[in-house]
Simulated scan of single mutants.
Amino acid sequence: MAAVRVPPNFFGIPFGLAGLAGSWVVAAGDGNAPSWVGDALLVLAAVVWLAVTVGYAAYTWSVRRAFVADLLDPVLAPFVSLAVITPMLLAAQGLTPRNLTAARIVVDVFLVLTVLFGGWITGQWIYGPLDLDRMHPGYFLPTVAGGLVASATTAVVGQRLLSVLMLGLGLVCWLVIGSLTLNRLFFRPPLPPALIPTLAIEVAPAALAGVALFALNGERIDFFVSLVAGYGLLMVLAQVRLLPAYLGLSFAPTFWAFTFPFAAVATTTLHWIADSRPSGHRVYAYLVLAGITALIGGIAVRTVVAAARGQLLPTAPEPARRDR
């Protein structure tokens, strides 16, 4: 019987749902949304993360060297990091108001795993052959997203020094990997259609840096928040030019690459609206929340439809299995 393949990019599903939950949590904190919506989305993200983790673990346990192959795959390996990054978000947002000690423990455990994976994959990129044409914006995930999410979540649970340390990790990796990624996108052949949705990840580093800085500075717009927001605005505007490429795609699970980056943009925007309080600020907050919910909700509905039709999970050839 053919094995059911659970690819590492499926971890983008709970990651995106956690990002949407974060937007609702921020809106609720500003009095612009009911708190139960964010809580429900956090529970949903946790359940989906657990389901994907169990499915992925079952597949990699039953198929010989499947996990090693994923870790060495130049396209898929960065997505493995989301398995350990997502629980930091869930713990910081969901556990902190209820049990700060438990939140710190979960955040710290998965922070260690995130840093270990980031160190390993950085060493792999240095040691192993790396083809620039196979590079894509998903390379931001292990160290840039990992570092910035770790910074934001440790700030939320009250570990300021650790938050600054992780902010440094994320920002420096953003400078290095961002330069390489843009060089690949500017001067090398276009990404294959399956990877085009990862172009949305280009908006994530600045947005995540903003979220981390807001968490560190008490939710205030300061010099550094404004600094990263300038580049973030450029990357968001660049997405407009990419719309023809996006609209020409057929639906695939890789569409979840759109979800967390734009959720991070939405969350940062909500922080800006809450701090600056322009005239009609509540309307702006509602529009941002409605937009990101419609985007991620639409992708979620389309994913459920694909699953119901048996079109979601790829089927692998009959594998060599572990001896029992």
Rank of each mutant, 00 (worst) to 15 (best):
Met1Pro: 06
Met1Lys: 13
Ala3Trp: 09
Val6Gln: 04
Val6Ile: 15
Asn9Phe: 15
Trp24Glu: 03
Val25Met: 11
Ala27Ile: 02
Ala28Lys: 08
Asp30Glu: 12
Asp30Ala: 15
Gly31Pro: 03
Asn32Gly: 12
Pro34Lys: 02
Ser35Thr: 09
Trp36Pro: 03
Leu42Ala: 13
Val43Gly: 08
Val43Glu: 11
Val47Phe: 15
Leu50Arg: 11
Ala51Ser: 10
Ala51Met: 12
Val54Gln: 08
Gly55Cys: 01
Tyr56Met: 09
Trp61Ile: 01
Ser62Asp: 15
Arg64Cys: 00
Asp73Tyr: 08
Pro74Ser: 03
Pro74Thr: 04
Pro74Gln: 05
Pro74Lys: 07
Val75Phe: 05
Leu76Trp: 13
Leu76Ala: 13
Ala77Tyr: 08
Pro78Arg: 11
Pro78Glu: 00
Val80Ile: 14
Val80Glu: 03
Ile85Thr: 02
Ile85His: 14
Thr86Val: 01
Met88Glu: 11
Ala91Val: 01
Ala103Gln: 07
Ile105Leu: 14
Leu116Pro: 01
Phe117Asp: 00
Gly123Ser: 10
Tyr127Ala: 14
Tyr127Phe: 11
Gly128Phe: 13
Pro129Lys: 15
Phe140Tyr: 15
Leu141Lys: 09
Pro142Ser: 10
Pro142Cys: 08
Gly146Val: 00
Gly147Met: 01
Leu148Val: 03
Leu148Ser: 01
Ser151Thr: 03
Gln159Lys: 11
Met166His: 14
Met166Lys: 07
Gly168Glu: 04
Gly170Phe: 13
Leu171Trp: 09
Cys173Ser: 14
Trp174Ser: 01
Ser179Ile: 01
Phe186Gln: 14
Pro192Lys: 04
Ala194Ser: 12
Leu195His: 09
Ile201Pro: 00
Glu202Gly: 02
Leu208Val: 13
Ala209Ser: 11
Val211Ser: 09
Phe214Tyr: 10
Ala215Gly: 05
Asn217Glu: 12
Gly218Cys: 06
Gly218Arg: 02
Asp222His: 07
Phe224Cys: 01
Leu227Met: 04
Gly230Ile: 00
Gly232Trp: 05
Leu234Asp: 04
Met235Tyr: 14
Met235Gly: 02
Val236Glu: 02
Leu237Gln: 08
Leu237Trp: 13
Gln239Ala: 05
Arg241Tyr: 11
Leu242Gly: 04
Ala245Met: 10
Gly248Lys: 09
Ser250Asn: 06
Pro253Gly: 02
Thr254Lys: 01
Phe255Ser: 07
Phe258His: 05
Phe260Tyr: 15
Thr267Asp: 08
Trp272Tyr: 14
Asp275Ser: 07
Asp275Trp: 14
Ser276Cys: 03
Ser276Lys: 09
Pro278Ile: 03
Gly280Asp: 10
His281Asn: 10
Arg282Val: 14
Ala285Arg: 03
Tyr286His: 11
Val288Gln: 00
Thr293Cys: 01
Ile296Leu: 12
Gly297Met: 12
Gly297Glu: 05
Val301Lys: 08
Ala306Phe: 06
Arg309Thr: 06
Gly310Asn: 06
Leu312Ala: 07
Leu313Thr: 05
Pro314Cys: 02
Pro314Glu: 06
Thr315Gly: 01
Pro317Ala: 02
Glu318Ser: 13
Glu318Ala: 14
Arg321Leu: 11
